[in-house]
Simulated assay, not measured.
Amino acid sequence: MIDAAIPAHRRGNWQAVYLTAATLLGAVLAFLVWATPTKDGAKDWTAPMIPGGWMAWSFPVAAFFWVIASLLVLFTILAIRFPETPRRGILRIETTRGDRLFITLLGSAFICLAWLFFFGAPVWWGLALCLAYAAAVFRWV
């Protein structure tokens, strides 16, 4: 959509919005990398970030929640910048981008749990399957 087609009251300095969001999310990610404990001079990616804490906040756990927060920020900006209309896909229900994101996240959680049950610990191929599932959901649902 070109800016000329957007009403004057909806125009804004979107480059500044994008840059601010990217800077804040990048700063949070940089902080998470910085806060990752070191062991013998190297980052110990799976060590607890809060020793003795009630939850195992390791870098992979923090990165997972960072990705979810980044997706929510991105989809919020997209919903404001490019208002959407629900569409009907193969499920025959009307869905928006946010609905498809929720369906993708929920389905990906079940795919990863099934992968862990059937194949075990390294979930890299399960993640690849989740990305293919996400592409299918956003294309056809």
Score class of each variant (00 low, 15 high):
Met1Ile: 11
Ile2Pro: 00
Ala5His: 12
Ala5Glu: 09
Ile6Cys: 01
Pro7Arg: 05
His9Lys: 09
His9Val: 10
Arg11Asp: 05
Arg11Thr: 07
Asn13Gln: 04
Trp14Asn: 03
Ala16Pro: 01
Leu19Lys: 13
Thr20Gln: 01
Thr20Tyr: 00
Ala21Lys: 02
Ala22Glu: 15
Leu24Phe: 04
Leu24Glu: 00
Leu25Ser: 05
Gly26Leu: 13
Ala27Thr: 12
Val28Ala: 09
Ala30Glu: 00
Pro37Glu: 07
Lys39Asp: 09
Ala42Arg: 04
Lys43Thr: 01
Asp44Gln: 09
Trp45Tyr: 14
Ala47Tyr: 05
Met49Ala: 11
Ile50Phe: 13
Ile50Asp: 08
Pro51Ile: 07
Ala56His: 13
Ser58Asp: 10
Val61Lys: 07
Ile68Val: 14
Ser70Ala: 12
Ser70Arg: 06
Leu71Met: 13
Leu71Phe: 14
Leu71His: 15
Leu72His: 12
Thr76Val: 09
Ile77Phe: 03
Leu78Ser: 12
Ala79Ile: 02
Ala79Lys: 08
Ile80Ala: 11
Arg81Asp: 03
Arg81Lys: 14
Arg81Cys: 01
Pro83Lys: 08
Glu84Gly: 15
Glu84Ile: 06
Thr85Pro: 04
Arg87Thr: 14
Arg87Tyr: 09
Gly89His: 04
Gly89Arg: 00
Arg97Tyr: 03
Thr104Tyr: 01
Thr104Asn: 03
Gly107Asn: 06
Ser108Ile: 07
Ala109Gly: 14
Phe110Asn: 06
Leu113Val: 14
Leu113Thr: 11
Ala114Thr: 15
Leu116Gly: 15
Phe117Gly: 14
Gly120Lys: 02
Gly120Gln: 01
Ala121Pro: 05
Val123Ile: 15
Leu127Gly: 15
Leu129Cys: 14
Leu129Ser: 08
Cys130Thr: 07
Leu131Thr: 07
Ala134Lys: 06
Ala134His: 08
Ala134Phe: 08
Ala135Asp: 05
Phe138Thr: 00
